[in-house]
C-alpha cells in the first residue's frame, strides 16, 4: 500500500541513488588515477559559493578580532567610556596599520620566496577553509582563467601547502597535505631516506615506509623527493617530531609537524611551471 501510494517518490529516490552511485564511482576512479576532468556543476557550485565564503570569511575574521579586542573590555566603569572610545578608535586605526604592515611583511616574504625558487608561480589569496571529518581543504581566489589546472602544487613561504584538486573559472580547491587523503613522496634531508608523508588532519602527518634500520631522529627535516611527478623536489614539508621503533612492525612509526601553519594560511603560491622562463 505504502509503495503504491508513494511510487513516484520511490522512483525519484531510486534515480537519485543511481546518480549518486555513478558520480561516486566515476570520481573515485578519477581520484585513484589522478586524471584531470572538468565538472560543470562542480564548477558552478564553487563559483556560486565563492561570494558567500568570502563574506563569511571576512565576517568570522572580524568577529574573532572583535572578540579578542573588545569583549574583555566589557565592565569598565562609566567614567572611562569616553577614554575607552578614543582608545577603541585608536586601536582600530592601529589595527588597520598593523594589518597593512603584517600584510606587507607577508607579501614581501612570499615575494622573496617566489624569487628564490626556479619556478613560475601565481599568487592567490585563501578565501575559505572547508572541512569535513577527514577533509582539509582551502579555497583560493584564482582559477582556470588565471592559468591554474588540477594537480598543480601549492606552497607558502613556510613550505608545501598541498595541490589543486578542483579548478573552477575563478576559484580553486586545494587539498592540504594534512588531509587524511593526501600522500606526498618525501625524503629526510639529512639521511636522504625516502618515504611517504600522509596527512593526519590537525595532528599533522605521518612519515610512512621508513624501515627500522634507517637513521631517523627528532628534528630531522622532511622535504619533497620529487618522485611521483606531482611535487618538485626540495620543497620544505616539516620536521620529525616523534620516532618510535616497534619490534612487531617492519617500519618506523614517525610523526611529522608541518612547517605551514594551516590555521593561519592567507596567501599562497601556485606553482604553474617547473622552470622560470628566460627573459
Amino acid at each position: 500500500m505504502f509503495i503504491f501510494r508513494h511510487y513516484k517518490s520511490l522512483v525519484l529516490i531510486a534515480v537519485l541513488f543511481i546518480i549518486a552511485i555513478i558520480m561516486l564511482s566515476y570520481n573515485t576512479r578519477r581520484l585513484q588515477t589522478d586524471s584531470q576532468t572538468d565538472g560543470f556543476f562542480r564548477k558552478l557550485v564553487l563559483e556560486a559559493a565563492a561570494p558567500f565564503q568570502k563574506l563569511m570569511h571576512i565576517s568570522s575574521t572580524s568577529i574573532s578580532e572583535s572578540w579578542e579586542k573588545y569583549v574583555y573590555l566589557v565592565g569598565v566603569v562609566e567614567e572611562n567610556k569616553k577614554l575607552e572610545k578614543t582608545v577603541g578608535e585608536l586601536e582600530a586605526e592601529l589595527l588597520r596599520y598593523k594589518e597593512g604592515h603584517l600584510e606587507a611583511q607577508r607579501l614581501a616574504k612570499i615575494l622573496a620566496f617566489k624569487e628564490s625558487l626556479p619556478y613560475d608561480f601565481i599568487a592567490a589569496r585563501v578565501i575559505a577553509k572547508e572541512q569535513a571529518a577527514l577533509s582539509k581543504i582551502v579555497i583560493i581566489d584564482k582559477g582556470s582563467f588565471d592559468g591554474l589546472r588540477i594537480g598543480m602544487p601549492v606552497v607558502s613561504s613556510a613550505g608545501l601547502v598541498g595541490r589543486l584538486i578542483d579548478v573552477s573559472w575563478n576559484v580553486a580547491k586545494v587539498l592540504l597535505i594534512i588531509d587524511e587523503n593526501s600522500n606526498v613522496d618525501v625524503m629526510l634531508q639529512r639521511t636522504r631516506a625516502q618515504g611517504i608523508f600522509s596527512g593526519m588532519g590537525y595532528r599533522g602527518g605521518a612519515l610512512k615506509y621508513i624501515t627500522k634500520n634507517q637513521d631517523v631522529a627528532e628534528g630531522d627535516e622532511v622535504i619533497s623527493s620529487g618522485m611521483g611527478g606531482v611535487f618538485p623536489k626540495g620543497l620544505m614539508i616539516g620536521r620529525v617530531s616523534f620516532v618510535e621503533k616497534l619490534d612487531t612492525e617492519l617500519f618506523l612509526r614517525i610523526r611529522v609537524a608541518p612547517y605551514v601553519d594551516f590555521s593561519k594560511l592567507e596567501e599562497v603560491l601556485v606553482l604553474v611551471a617547473e622552470e622560470k622562463r628566460r627573459k
Binding site: 546518480i19 549518486a20 552511485i21 561516486l24 564511482s25 570520481n27 557550485v45 559559493a49 572541512q131 569535513a132
Partner: peptide, 13 residues
C-alpha cells in the same frame, strides 16, 4: 561534496 569533500558523490550518497 563540491565544497568540502575530495571525493564527489560520497556525501550525496
Amino acid at each position: 561534496d563540491c565544497l568540502v569533500s575530495s571525493v564527489i558523490g560520497l556525501f550525496t550518497l
